[in-house]
Design a protein around this nucleic acid. Sequence first.
DNA 1: TTGTACGCGTTATCAT
DNA 2: ATGATAACGCGTACAA
Lengths: 339, 339
Amino acid sequence: MKLTINQIAELAQVSKGTVSKVLNGHRGISDSTRERILKLVKQLDYHPDASARALALQKTGVLGFLIPHEAATSLTGNYWTSMLSGTSQRAAQAGYNLLVLTPPHEGDLQGALNHILKRSTVDGLIIGSELLDRDSLSELVLRKVPFVLLGRNPDFDHFSVDIDSVQGTTLMIRHMAAQGYRKIGALLGPAHYPYSRERLDAYQRTLSEAQLTWTASAHSDYRSDSIRRSLLSLLESHPDMDALFLASGGDFLLDTLRILRERGIELPRFGLGVFDDYPFMELLSPAITAIRQPLFEAGEEAVTLLLQLIQKTLPASRLVTLPTTLVSRESCGEVTRER
Amino acid sequence: MKLTINQIAELAQVSKGTVSKVLNGHRGISDSTRERILKLVKQLDYHPDASARALALQKTGVLGFLIPHEAATSLTGNYWTSMLSGTSQRAAQAGYNLLVLTPPHEGDLQGALNHILKRSTVDGLIIGSELLDRDSLSELVLRKVPFVLLGRNPDFDHFSVDIDSVQGTTLMIRHMAAQGYRKIGALLGPAHYPYSRERLDAYQRTLSEAQLTWTASAHSDYRSDSIRRSLLSLLESHPDMDALFLASGGDFLLDTLRILRERGIELPRFGLGVFDDYPFMELLSPAITAIRQPLFEAGEEAVTLLLQLIQKTLPASRLVTLPTTLVSRESCGEVTRER
DNA sequence: TTGTACGCGTTATCAT
DNA sequence: ATGATAACGCGTACAA
């Protein structure tokens, strides 16, 4: 049999209401009975049942992390897992449990969200925002569900944590220009993703600030064949390109390196800079210059923000923007000169 | 106001008991009222409250994935996240939610486990078994908590999903021997981890099967300084070593490559084989020969097994062992000969 | 075929 | 300071 509050009450010779008060730190209990109950609770290792507590309080003590893609693809890479890591860490430290919400099949996002919401399984939500439309988000606000966006949504103003794409792109393009590259192309993520647009803009602006008029860019989704197609056509239509800015990490880099090698294009004579840093980049030859995103920290910040929303303490600001750092390595000219 | 079963009942002009029966597919309801209720439910998008349902049924519809290390370290690598990915995928498809249980601070594992259990927040548990002792596991069995171990526990027989360390190690060592290496050393994970022992045994057995008597091995934990120390002492005490078997992935490879380069040891004249495969290994020069572990699949299998335990349908076998595959690349001799 | 009443374990309110 | 009692929302025997 499972231990219940009734049994504790019986053993302590009090009513269950008294036990509840002690457990929740309410005042108006004599020290003697408080200690008697506390001792019993500790001794029997009693913990109030989560479901019953949730029902009574209308709070589950659970945070949901909604990842917009199915687990098989999203949780295999570095991006979402690093954010999840930070989220999990801080949630655990704050005494919350973390539910990983991953659509059962690619595209079932809305359904998964609705399912969770209507059953009120979670107290709040952290949402990978890239695929949720304006209407869904509006409904969340309307229904007063506390939530935080991970990655800003351009046409929906809400509490969110973002990594500074503009600052990162500027950092990288300036660096590439400073290294002497003059015809810097850009391979970007899907055109409808907000950060693709931001990075494209920043890329163009920074180039023109550096008095470089040469420009070439292409979009691609995350499938290898798409990356290959986009990059090949970019290379062919711009044979004079002398450097490439990869505006996304993960498979972008792997496929790009394969293609560059196939075509006999040598780094760092041809420059390469990537948005997203991994430890292994240091071991490639040449090592790859990259923008390091504070993904773990973004996850942490998102939880912090969300908890404030749940507790209705107004956060300091609606938007937390985290800066990136440049990790300068050989693929982008630096070492060439020394040699 | 939140929609409740009472409101549905009222609107449908029936008692809530009837609504409940319809919702749960019980029979003994006339088609007309069933359809009337169903229509209403669909129309208003009603979903029964999760907490209330959990309280009544004594089932939460939630599975827990207990990772033995704090999120900051464990969820940053590839190992746990890949398993988590498979777990999340299959859980979602089976209609379960997945709770990521990660100790708030390194070492708080027992506390976290107890917390979850006593409150009965989950219907079942998938446990990264390496750090849980026999007593804790026994208690789980005693309390009839359905759980599955990810990674077999040598001194505790229970339902578990494991990746075949012995088969993988044998595969690799045979390959290295076939490539002509004669003095193959081994750098293993922490000595108290079960799979370290398994891999060490398999390493020695395979060598002796191949009539190779030369042997050298060292253990290390996952911190860079420890890896460095172990490897350096291994190299120094065995200057004639001509190949190395890295029995763990992740940072092991990164640190090892750094050290080998520092010391001017060239691959593949010196052979290198790693237990754990990553896409980027293909891009290193030379590319790294590796054992590929079916981590995602292990996560999936664990859920499948767990669901059977929860439904009390006896699984076919207590132990699911998944085979590895060898990914042969340049770091281990293959290409040398061709050149 | 449908409705009633109670239990699930906890918390909160209102008496005492 | 403590104790009854009524929610919380749902499932389910059992009665009608």
